[in-house]
Amino acid sequence: MSDNKIIQGVIAEFKDPADILHAAGKVRDAGFKEWDVHSPFPVHGMDDAMGEKRSPLGWMVAFAAFTGVVVGLGMQWWMSAVDYKLVIAGKAFFSYQAFFPVTFALGVLFSVITAVFGMLGLNKLRFHHPVFHSNSFERSTDDAFFISILAEDKKFDPNKTLQFFKEIGCVNVELLEEK
């Protein structure tokens, strides 16, 4: 590696939830795409400020629930009414009434797993991310509010973006450089 550090983006700190909500609207209006707001808790109204669409997670979970129900009922049907039939308590081989609890449980199990892992997948989490190169980012999980704009963004220009953040009233701003 050369001595020239690669600039990966810019991160700016804002004072409080009100400020960051305001600033987020400005960043959106400036036309940036590869940017995000980092806060210790979800800030109310931020999705609108950022112009975010609703999460598709609901549909994924609905599909998973349906799959779970089909798998659950199918499994019980196959095991009890096809593969090895046993007469128990005079009940039908395919006793849908009695199969309800397990079917329900599997529907829930599939949905829960999808909700959690779907969420993690959609979040595109990774252990190495430009924002972690900031010197003050660890405060984002404590009490600080940041906006980061990544270098991948077409409108990104290190100096102009720095300037832009200063204009919209950040408390602090720094370049994200690979270490």
Binding site: V37, S39, E52, S55, V112, A115, G118, N123, F127
Partner: peptide, 27 residues
Amino acid sequence: LGWRGGNRQWKHYEVAYLLLAGISTPL
């Protein structure tokens, strides 16, 4: 898991939390 508190994560996170709550209630 590399959580970075971005709103693009909170967005899914909040929906996931709501869904988990919704599913866990009948559970």
